[in-house]
């Protein structure tokens, strides 16, 4: 595959959320506002790129039997870096994302890419793959975050969009709204992929 393809495949064709159905928990849990979606997207992309990079570098130094624990250790290290930096420099965001920051460790996208891609490919490809998957994940978080915030709170990035008389559909920022939004989004992407074929 061409190098560019390693990046772009994560955006739609192999999008981690829409097609591979990975990383669903944070996709729904933190997207009641768009800012949270962006924050989580950046955090996960950082971890994904760094862990893909390190794992593709050390892949020949790790005995096969203990590869999963080693990968998890690498991922957990970068997650902790994100957690500490966020708590120190972005306390508001860190509070809003809560336990979903440490839970990036068990985000299946990251271990999935480490195991399925970075442990078999060279550094450059792994880097691009991580970046593409991360951006693809972030796109979905931003879309769902924006839809839920506009419909559920009547704001976008905290700025009111409509007049005083607008009554937001509270349901959208509550848990059921998350499930409904992603159902419709995956449905639409299925439709789109079918049209493209």
């Amino acid at each position: 595959m061409k190098l560019g393809g390693e990046f772009t495949k994560g955006l739609l064709k192999e999008n981690p959320v829409l097609v591979l159905a990975l990383g669903l928990c944070p996709t729904l849990a933190v997207t009641n506002t768009m800012v949270n979606g962006i924050g989580m997207g950046i955090a996960a992309t950082f971890v994904l790129v760094c862990s893909n990079l390190v794992i593709s570098l050390i892949k020949n130094l790790v005995p096969n039997r203990i590869r999963i624990p080693v990968f998890i250790t690498v991922i957990a290290t970068f997650v902790t870096v994100v957690k500490l930096v966020m708590a120190g420099y972005f306390p508001g965001l860190s509070k809003a994302l809560g336990i979903f920051i440490p839970l990036i460790v068990v985000n299946c996208i990251i271990l999935g890419r480490a195991e399925g891609f970075a442990s078999k490919n060279n550094v450059l490809r792994s880097l691009l793959d991580g970046l593409g998957m991360g951006v693809g994940f972030m796109l979905i978080l931003i879309i769902i975050g924006a839809v839920r915030e506009i419909l559920g709170a009547g704001t976008i990035l905290g700025h009111p969009l409509f007049g005083e008389s607008f009554k937001p559909a509270l349901l959208m920022i509550l848990p059921p709204g998350g499930f409904f939004s992603i159902a419709i989004l995956i449905g639409l992407s299925n439709l789109l992929q079918k049209r493209l074929e």
């Binding site: 159902a183 639409l188 439709l191």
Partner: peptide
Amino acid sequence: VPPSLKGLPIAFMVAGLMSLAFL
């Protein structure tokens, strides 16, 4: 079920309704 909603999307819809009930 409409073909594009088969599988995951319809499962999410069901989960959404269950979540609504649990509210």
